[in-house]
Write a protein that binds this DNA or RNA. Structure first.
Lengths: 140, 140
DNA sequence: ATATTTAAAGACCTTTTTATCTTTTTTTAT
DNA sequence: ATAAAAAAAGATAAAAAGGTCTTTAAATAT
């Protein structure tokens, strides 16, 4: 239901949210080791998130990735938009061009409700919330 | 949210459900023309559905695809299982092995509910229902 | 200044999904 | 029997997703 890359990103971000601050950065190696996502692959994903200001990073000794205070309030939906584009959960389930509330496709009212609910929840969930989840501490 | 192939399959099946019977078969060409799915691609999908008894087909002149009476009661979930395998909407959103109600991952209770609702609806919807949808007549 | 540590960038490879083309098999009408 | 109509099967190609490797750039400690 969620892509591989998105699930990896969420795991990595939860890990970083727990362990980082502006002064305590997490290295790529640590993220890769703890989340068990291949290093070059998670690197690509994190680079993308840094470019889009979800995370910050600093190079060199004692460098690494960290969440700023504001970053923690980024929603899952924003991460989806960055990694998969804005259309991922936002188009007609049958890819019809003229599907809408007044002229709905046969799935629009039924499965479409689920899609809308998914969007709503993705928008509500932030990393500040996720990091408070009890399991997220020993996820890794 | 749904794969390309699955959306194609659903469109084709809705079309066939409207226009076929054991004596009136729909040719591949007609399906391809009406749904605007490339012929060889929709052929592959329909073959798969025939092998799995969702549809029936007959070769030769006046041949084609048709839904049997029982076929119309096949659920969308069964089609998902055939085309995408049983795990598609059935595993932990973060792909954790030990994610369950008593030890849920951080998405389990929230996004997981949406997943369960999706499964429930996919299971309830049959082609007999979909063919009664008003738009499904002039979908194509 | 230099060496070391670390992320960034870019080239490359593999697998899966999407799509096309060609040949074969089956059925029917003549 | 033969020709035509149609699906089945299989081989191939293109694009996207997933994954790896190497080089470059930046920061820090010495």
């Amino acid at each position: 239901m969620l892509s591989n890359s998105l699930a990896y990103a969420i795991k990595a971000l939860i890990y970083i949210s727990h362990n980082s601050s502006e002064t305590e950065r997490i290295t790529l190696k640590e993220v890769s080791d703890s989340t068990e996502v291949p290093k070059p692959y998670i690197a690509k994903i994190l680079q993308d998130l840094v470019r889009n200001n979800v995370l910050h990073s600093i190079k060199g000794p004692n460098g690494g990735f960290y969440f700023s205070e504001e970053g923690l309030d980024i929603s899952l939906l924003q991460v989806v938009h960055i990694l998969e584009g804005p259309d991922k959960y936002n188009k007609c389930l049958l890819s019809l061009k003229d599907c809408n509330a007044s002229s709905p496709c046969p799935l629009h009212d039924n499965i479409g409700q689920v899609r809308v609910e998914l969007l709503k929840r993705l928008e509500q969930i932030t990393f500040r919330q996720l990091m408070q989840h009890k399991k997220s501490v020993d996820l890794f």
